[in-house]
Design a protein around this nucleic acid. Sequence first.
DNA 1: CTGAAAGCGCTAACAT
DNA 2: ATGTTAGCGCTTTCAG
Lengths: 331, 331
Amino acid sequence: MSRYSNPTMKDVAREAGVALGTVSKVINNQPVGEEYRIKVENAIKSLDYKVNTYARGLKTKQSYTIALILPDIINPFFASIAHYTELYLFELNYKLMLCCSQGKCEKELFYINMASQNKVDGIIALTYSDISSYVSEDLPIISIDRHFNNTVLCVASDNYTGGYLATEKLIGAGCKHPVYIRTGSVVYGETNKRKYGYLDACEHNGITPDILDLTDGDDTIECFRNFLEQSYERKDVPPIDGIFTVNDYLGFQLIEYLHSIHKDIPEDIQLVGFDGIQHFGSLGYYMSTIAQPVERIAKACVDILLSPDKSKYPNPYLLPVEYKYGGTTLL
Amino acid sequence: MSRYSNPTMKDVAREAGVALGTVSKVINNQPVGEEYRIKVENAIKSLDYKVNTYARGLKTKQSYTIALILPDIINPFFASIAHYTELYLFELNYKLMLCCSQGKCEKELFYINMASQNKVDGIIALTYSDISSYVSEDLPIISIDRHFNNTVLCVASDNYTGGYLATEKLIGAGCKHPVYIRTGSVVYGETNKRKYGYLDACEHNGITPDILDLTDGDDTIECFRNFLEQSYERKDVPPIDGIFTVNDYLGFQLIEYLHSIHKDIPEDIQLVGFDGIQHFGSLGYYMSTIAQPVERIAKACVDILLSPDKSKYPNPYLLPVEYKYGGTTLL
DNA sequence: CTGAAAGCGCTAACAT
DNA sequence: ATGTTAGCGCTTTCAG
C-alpha cells in the first residue's frame, strides 16, 4: 500500500511566509490579520494542503468519529438506523464507523475499547448482550432499545404504547382472540414493554391474553403451527383471529406460513407487526405495523451523545410510534 | 464530551522498569528478551494499557480503516455489500467507515480526501458519479460495478453473462417477447453489459429485442404502462410475455403494478430481476433473479485493496452470477 | 538486546 | 496580532 507524504503545516507556513502558529489559527478559524489569512489560504490551495487528522487527534483527543454497533446491517430496520445516523452525523461533520457485531460480545467490546483509546468519540449501540458491566461511568455510549441500567442512557421507541396500539387496532378491527408472539433474546430490554402494552390493552377490553414466547433455537414455524392447532382445538376460547408480532421480521415469516396453509389475511387472521419496515426501504410496508421513528431515534442518539450534559435527558428517552396500515388488517 | 487520559507507553515503561523502546518492541512483536517481555506484558495488564492509535498513525501513516462509499445503505443490495465487507475487514483487523453518498459527488470527494490524509487506508466505492478524474494514480481505491478507466480497478459481477442468462431463462420458459427494462444513471458502467447480454441472447434465439430505457426523473410506472399498452396494440409482434429488469428494485415495482392491473405472474408475464435480493436479507427471493455473489465481491474488493500489487488483477475483475428461481418464472 | 533520543504534524500556551 | 516552542504518544534510529 502506498503511503503519502503530504504537505504539512510547516510547508504551508514557509510557502506563505508566516509562522506555523498562524497557519494553525487560520485553519481553526481563530482571529488572524486579513492579509495573513489570505496569504495562508493561498498557500493552502497551491500546495493542496490538508490537515493530518492523526496529528490533530493526538493533541485534541477527538476523532470526530462515532461508532455504530448493530447486530447486523442486512436487517432493514438496522439498516435504516445506520442510514439516518450516517446522514445526521455527516451534517455535524462526524464520520461513522460501522460494526456489525452479529451479537458477538467480543466484537462489541473491541469497539468499546476503541472509544477508550479515543479512536472514536462515542458509541451508539444496539446490542443483545449486557455490555453495561464493561462500560465505565464516563464512556460516551448510548444504547438503542436496551435499557441496562442508569449509567447507560437508552433511546427507544415508546414500546409500551406501540404494543397497546397494535392490540387495540386488532380488537377494534373485530378480533376476539388476538395473540402476541415474540421471539429473540431473553435479555431484559425495552422491547419487553411491547408485551405489557399488549397485556394492558387486552385487560382494558376484557380479553384474555394469549402469548407465544419463542426462545432462540426454537423452530419458529413449528412452534407456531402447534400453538395455532392447540388453540383451534380448545372450545373455551374463540379461534385465533389476530396476531401481534414483536417485529415485522417474525410477522413476515408467519404470513408466509399462513398463506401456505391457505389462511386468508386479513379475512381469517389479521396481523400487526412492529418496526415499520418497507420493501426496499421505501416501496411500501410488508404488513400493518407499528412504525418506529427511526430518523428521530438516530438523531436523538447523536444529539445526546454529543451533548455536554447527558443528565438532562430522561432514561430511557422514549420516542412516539405510529400505526401504519399495510394490508394485513381490516382497518 | 469527556476525554480520557489513559496510561501511555511511558507509564508502562516505568511500571515495568524498562525503557520506552522496549515496550514498543513488545507491542509490535519485535525480538525482546523473554524476562523483559514478561515484565512489560504484566505492566500492560495491570495498567490496562492500550496503544493510542493516533500517535501510532501519526508515525506509521496507517489507520487500519477502510472507507466504504455506497449510494445508500437502505437498499438491501448495498446493505449486503456493507455487511460482508465489514465482516471480512474485521477478520483482517480493519475497521469500516461507512459513507452513504446519496449520489452526492461532494460527499464522495470528502471521503476521497480522507484517504489522501491517511485517515483511511483505502476506499471501496460504489458510486454513480465519475470520480475517476479526482482520483490520483496512487490513491488506493476500488470501484464496485463501475468501470471508469484503467487507473481505478473495478470489481463487478459478470453482468454480460447475467443478462444473457436471464434472457435465456425467459426464452427457455416459453417467452416469445421478452423485453429488457432498465432505469438509473446514464453513466457508463458495468451494469450496461446486462443489456448486451440480453441483446445477444435475443439474437441467438432469433428474437427481436425490445428495450425500455427509463431515465432518471421519469415516472417509472407511467412509462411502463405506455410501453405495455403500445406493445399490445402492435400486431406485428407477440404480446409482451417476459420481462428482464436491470435490478430487483425495478422488478418489484413492476410486479406491484402488474398485480394491480390483474396480470398473473408468471402465467401471463414472467419476470427475472437482477441482484438476488431477499426479504429481510434471508427470507427468500422477491422474484426470480440473477443473484450477484455479494460476499465474493466484498472479499475481492478488500483483497485487492490490501494487496501490495494491484497490477496482477484484471480490470474489470469479474465474478460469476447465478440464476435463482423466485416464483416469477415458470422454471 | 536494551536505552536514549529524535521527530511524525499538530495545537496551545507563551513570549514578543 | 504574530512568532516561537513544548509536547501529545508513538516508532525507529542510533549508541551503548
